[in-house]
Structures are given as structure tokens and as C-alpha cells.
Simulated assay, not measured.
Amino acid sequence: MLDSVTANALSGALDGLALRQRAIADNIANINTPGYQAQRVLFEDALRRAVESGSGVAQPTVERSLEPTRLNGNNVNLDTETLSNIDTVLRFQFASQALSGQAASITKAIGQASA
């Protein structure tokens, strides 16, 4: 039903943002773990290319952060993680509302067509 470039892109964005939220939670949980390297989830560029190609389907990737490390080898920065989490939550809410709105429009159109 929602198999369009827009729906695929919104769904992919939700998947990427959900993965980013898990990575942020893992990073914060390991803030005092010696040698732990923060994770970063990347998907926006791949998603942009997928939309431009007409598919809207992209896979997120998880990479280690290149931020400098503390003496114990850990590079998690609580300020960075907090800001990233706020940004991610807001983007997730926006994409979720957009996908919901698209589904509601289709449902309304189907209802009007059958009346």
C-alpha cells in the first residue's frame, strides 16, 4: 500500500534513526568502559542517493567514532551523545508523523473512492 519512494525513504529514515538511538544508548551505557569506542550510525547520504535513484531504500551503517580518546581509551562524550539523542528523537517524531500522515491520506482516498 505504501510502496512509494517517499514511503520507502520515511521507513528507511525511521530504521536508521532507531538504530542511531540504540547506538547512543550503548555509547552512554559504556561511558566508563576502558577502550570503548563510540558508535556512529550513518544513513542520510545513502538515503539521499536512494531517493535520487528512485528507490528510496537505503541501509544504515555503523562505524566507530573518530573522536579523540581519554587516557583509558574511551571516546564517549556525554554532551555529544545527549545532543545527538535530542536531534534523533525529534527527527524520529517528524518522520513518524509524516509516514502516518501519508497513510491517513491513502486511507481517506480509499474511503472516498468506495463511497
Rank of each mutant, 00 (worst) to 15 (best):
S100M: 13
L83P: 01
Q59F: 07
E44C: 01
S100W: 10
Q97F: 09
F92E: 01
L78N: 03
T82C: 00
D87F: 02
T61L: 11
V76P: 10
R40G: 00
A13S: 14
L19T: 10
G101F: 07
A98T: 06
R49V: 07
K108T: 15
P34A: 14
N75P: 08
S11M: 12
R20D: 00
R48P: 02
R49D: 13
L10P: 12
N74C: 05
T107H: 15
Q102C: 03
R64M: 04
A46W: 02
K108N: 15
S55V: 11
D79M: 09
R20T: 00
F92D: 01
Q93W: 06
E67W: 03
L83Y: 08
Q21E: 10
A38S: 14
G111V: 05
Q102H: 11
N30D: 04
T33L: 11
R64Y: 09
Q21S: 14
E67D: 14
E52V: 06
N27R: 06
P68Y: 02
T80H: 06
T69P: 06
S53M: 10
R91T: 01
E44S: 13
E52I: 04
D26V: 01
Y36V: 00
I31P: 04
D87C: 00
E63Y: 05
S84L: 04
V41C: 13
T61M: 11
G16K: 03
A95H: 09
A9S: 14
G101A: 10
S65P: 01
G16R: 04
I106W: 13
V62S: 09
A38G: 11
D45C: 02
V51S: 02
T82Y: 02
A109G: 10
F94Y: 12
N30Y: 08
I106R: 14
L19F: 07
A38R: 13
G73V: 07
S96I: 00
V41N: 10
L17A: 03
I110V: 15
A103D: 04
I86A: 12
V57N: 01
S105M: 15
N74D: 09
V51F: 01
Q59L: 11
V76K: 05
L17T: 02
G111D: 10
D15E: 11
Q39T: 06
G12M: 05
T88E: 01
A25D: 06
Q21N: 13
V62M: 05
A103R: 12
T61Y: 03
V57D: 02
I24R: 00
N72K: 09
R49F: 09
A46E: 09
I31V: 15
L10Q: 12
T33N: 12
L71D: 11
A98M: 11
A29P: 00
D26L: 07
L78C: 01
T33I: 08
R70D: 11
T88I: 00
D26S: 15
E81G: 03
G35E: 09
T33D: 12
D79N: 13
Q39W: 09
R49I: 02
G111R: 15
L66P: 04
R20M: 04
N85E: 05
D45S: 14
L19S: 12
G56H: 08
P60I: 06
A18P: 00
T61E: 11
R70Y: 06
I110E: 11
N27K: 08
D87I: 03
N74Y: 06
E44M: 07
N30V: 04
I28M: 14
Q59A: 13
L17D: 01
